[in-house]
Design a protein around this nucleic acid. Structure first.
Lengths: 336, 336
DNA sequence: TTGTATGCGTTATCAA
DNA sequence: TTGATAACGCATACAA
């Protein structure tokens, strides 16, 4: 299988390898019709298929990029990935996908292996823990783009949601609708996970701007499986929040689970808003008010930035691109 | 960047390239400690990283497989993909992902390009339209596994849901719960899309087995955007069905949308069951009764089969592996 | 224990 | 217009 090589074609067509090579690369400016035909025939006859890997070795380009994500199962990731793949498809590039599960070891291993495989560039949802490695890549001018998270002080292009704006959108909509006691629910707050930090920070700022107090008790930050019990605790207190802001789809799900097990009615007893326009937002009763990330635009942009770097090897000032979220008003927040 | 090669290391360490090569491949049975150290130092100093592509050329293995899917955005796909990637991760293989959008042209192009890139095997959710191409691969004994769909009469390994059983599970549960007028909703019925064909066929068989008539009017097969109007038509007739079986997540969503716009109450006015355990099944009110596909097992198995073929180049009789679905009883079907 | 020579399937340079 | 020949970076058989 796949034993037939350019040499075989050359022999059968009675020309040299170089001629075949030129033919394949469409450099036929000076090639006689006759030769072209003979080569075409030989290729056909032998069922020859070029070995792209050999060509890559010579040309120093594999037409392949790597995309390293936490977990392809997350909707954000899937959508960004799809957009990236679309851009690559237009350019006849291929995409290697890797899941790190947010594990720095795995991330490191993947990055190293993919570079050994000579990928032309890397789009990474970084764990944020392999700073030296990131640094090395930028020093070597290796084409690299971060998505979703970034690493402060590192001159790496990054494509991010404007998390402050997202939080502000949520708070403003809630406040405009007449809510004051607003809670926020998030996974554990760790410093290297930029979106969480920024969303919470944005939440606090927005509250303050609207002249509302930030009640620490209303900030629920816990591992996903523990969120429900935290909610239970909070809602059995004297003054539970009137509205909840779930900072992503995972926490939203937990809130919904919690609500399902109690008699709390949305939006009458509790208003709910979240970041990530989950697929069932429209189907759920009540329809869920959400803040959507422009995932496809983000994926596209990340890919386009990467290709800019791949194509014109020049550095250029690095950019942190912020994408604006969109408030989608539905029925889980109602005018008080 | 990445200019340093084995020759450089060899020179710096004062040994020959072959020695370095041996060192890298852990063939140090007979290597002096001294040499090892010198090589290690040189590698470190130069920041040498092996070029995997060059090695691939020699060894005829890229440690990369291709996975060609319709659309990574579908949940089934994402989950299968994740499982495949996990298996690959264990073996230090990488995965190239391609989206065909069920377009045979794209499929063809991808298959050809990936083979040119010398991937060691291919897992394909086949459009079913490139029969010659599939045949050629099997003739050449190229490692290939189909998922979700198969192509009749083609000796290719395939990993599929037991669609007949899935349909039977649905019908039996409905009938056992006291329903008789059961409708089914599906995307357009086209012959090469095996799951649809089998699910509908399974539905009919199961109905017949239970002594119930198959009412053609209750079989709604239409493009997704047109399903809602079909449902409207059906439910304004004299004898609408008492229960609906949605054959996948897409049609389920349409049913749910339809329900939302009417006053139909689930499960009181209409029972609902579907294939694909959607993420919101547990959250929706009422909680949705579904039939789950063992997506991760399917992905794992597909990858394992592929590796069997990759490793032991022997053919072996090809297998069509059927996976059993699981009925998850929740609240959208209630005992009448 | 280590080095030499050769090949993997292309492309590129330079002659012819 | 086409053909030798030398890379590309690594692995391997065989020699030393």
């Amino acid at each position: 299988m796949q034993k037939v090589t350019m040499a075989d074609v050359a022999k059968l067509a009675n020309v040299s390898k170089s001629t075949v090579s030129q033919y394949l690369n469409k450099r036929y400016d000076y090639m006689s019709e006759e030769t072209k035909k003979r080569i075409a025939r030989a290729i056909e006859e032998l069922g020859y298929r070029p070995n792209f890997i050999a060509r890559s070795l010579k040309q120093k380009s594999t037409a392949t990029i790597g995309v390293i994500v936490f977990n392809i199962l997350h909707m954000l990731t899937t959508q960004v990935l799809r957009a990236i793949e679309d851009v690559c498809q237009e350019r006849d590039f291929h995409v290697i996908v890797c899941n790190t599960d947010d594990n720095p070891e795995k991330e490191k291993k993947y990055i190293e292996m993919l570079r050994a495989k000579q990928v032309d560039g890397l789009i990474v949802f970084p764990t944020g823990k392999n700073v030296e490695l990131y640094e090395r890549m930028t020093e070597e001018q290796f084409p690299l783009v971060f998505v979703d998270r970034m690493v402060p002080d590192l001159p790496v292009d990054a494509v991010l949601l404007d998390n402050y704006q997202a939080a502000k959108l949520a708070v403003d909509h809630l406040v405009d609708s007449g809510y004051e006691r607003i809670g926020i629910v998030t996974p554990p707050i760790v410093s290297h996970v930029i979106p969480r930090i920024e969303r919470i920070e944005g939440f606090k700022r927005a509250m303050t701007e609207r002249g509302l107090p930030v009640v620490e008790e209303y900030i629920i930050g816990a591992e996903i499986p523990r969120i429900k019990e935290e909610l239970n605790r909070l809602f059995s207190s004297d003054h539970p929040p009137q509205a909840l802001f779930a900072i992503n789809d995972l926490t939203l799900t937990e809130v919904l689970n919690f609500v399902k097990e109690t008699n709390i009615n949305i939006p009458d007893d509790l208003a709910l808003i979240s970041i990530d326009d989950v697929p069932f937002a429209n189907i759920y009763t009540p329809r869920l008010t959400t803040i959507a990330q422009p995932t496809f635009e983000m994926g596209r942009k990340a890919a386009e930035r990467l290709f800019m770097k791949i194509e014109q090897k020049e550095a250029g000032r690095h950019q942190v691109l912020r994408f604006s979220p969109t408030l989608i008003k539905r029925d889980s927040v109602k005018q008080q």
